[in-house]
């Protein structure tokens, strides 16, 4: 995720080159070049800095420095400015209660990611391969983003609660009611609904780039639909799949709103614990320490998953 600002910087750099070259190759239009353009054109390093500087500045000021501050605070006792200590880390890492919550969070995140990946891939695949109304369908996928996250969660509360929309419908149909609100199932449903578009978009992008001839070639060479999917379609789109998985897994792991609203008090996730340390317990150093540990764990898991994905499918597709 941290790679997108530099690449945006690169493309901006490229277009800047084009402009400068244009001005240089046509002597008659020299007068149209502003003084600033000329000034920058003669100082390529300054130009690079002018273009790439702002995104890097944003990264440094709003991500790197706060992260560093969090790291510093996590080694302080009880409050900001307290004595230096490792207690926040040892307390967290030796507590069965907290580690159980981390494990629970991990399991839920894996389940959510797996469900979203499966449903999202099927959805993206059907949009790309079997549909003509691609734009409309993509719009429908993105549309929920226009409504606030919180409002969508409250909608799910309405649907899932006892005597809510779902139960009323089941009752009408003469089926037993479920009362899903405040269960793990409700949390899974909420997450799946919220993150699905995030996964569908990269899946869609990599599937559109997949050359249909490759699928035909595979079938021509004797591979049935499942074999073709596993040995051509999936490996060729693996970059998009990994991107989608990362986009879903990270926010799920750190999430605290969805589990609080839909999961009730018995279904704690680690994001809720951290939030609690900052907002109710006012133990910022402890919250920061948990945050650091979780960040390291998530990054390690993602690196592992990416390596594994790349290893499984050799060189991987270059399409995504």
């Amino acid at each position: 995720m941290g790679e997108s600002p530099p690449s945006a910087g690169e493309s901006a750099d490229g277009s800047g080159d084009g402009l400068a070259a244009d001005g240089g190759s046509a002597p008659g239009v020299d007068g149209r070049m502003s003084g600033l353009t000329t000034y920058l054109r003669e100082r390529p390093r300054l130009r690079t800095l002018a273009i790439a500087g702002p995104p890097y500045g944003i990264l440094v000021f709003f991500f790197a420095i706060p992260l560093l501050a969090m790291l510093v605070v996590s080694f302080q006792a009880d409050q900001i400015g307290g004595a230096w200590t490792l207690h926040n880390y040892t307390d967290f890492l030796t507590s069965d209660t907290y580690l159980t919550v981390v494990w629970r969070t991990f399991l839920i995140s894996v389940q959510v990611t797996a469900i979203v990946a499966a449903v999202g891939y099927a959805l993206a695949y059907s949009i790309v391969r079997f549909s003509r109304r691609t734009t409309l369908l993509l719009l429908l996928v993105i549309l929920p983003f226009w409504t606030s996250y919180i409002i969508r969660m409250y909608a799910w509360i309405n649907i899932l609660q006892s005597d809510g929309v779902l139960d009323s419908l089941l009752d009408l149909a003469g089926l037993p009611t479920l009362g899903l609100l405040y269960t793990d199932t409700a949390v899974l449903i909420g997450f799946t609904y919220v993150w699905l578009p995030l996964a569908v978009l990269p899946f869609y992008a990599s599937l559109t780039n997949l050359d249909g001839d490759l699928i035909e070639a595979s079938k021509d060479l004797g591979a049935g639909p499942i074999r073709t999917f596993l040995s051509v379609t999936l490996p060729m789109t693996i970059n998009g799949v990994v991107t989608g998985i990362v986009l879903v897994f990270i926010p799920t792991f750190g999430s605290f709103i969805t589990p609080r609203l839909l999961g009730g008090t018995n279904n704690i996730m680690i994001g809720m614990v951290i939030e609690n340390q900052f907002k109710s317990a006012f133990n910022w150093p402890f919250g920061a320490a948990i945050g650091m540990v979780i960040s390291v764990v998530v990054v390690a898991l993602l690196v592992l998953a990416t390596r594994l994905g790349g290893g499984l499918f050799g060189t991987g597709g270059e399409t995504a």
Partner: peptide
Amino acid sequence: PFERDVNMVFQDLALFPH
């Protein structure tokens, strides 16, 4: 196609890049 005893050389070859 996968049950037919014919094989095709595609116009743009369709070699598997991976």
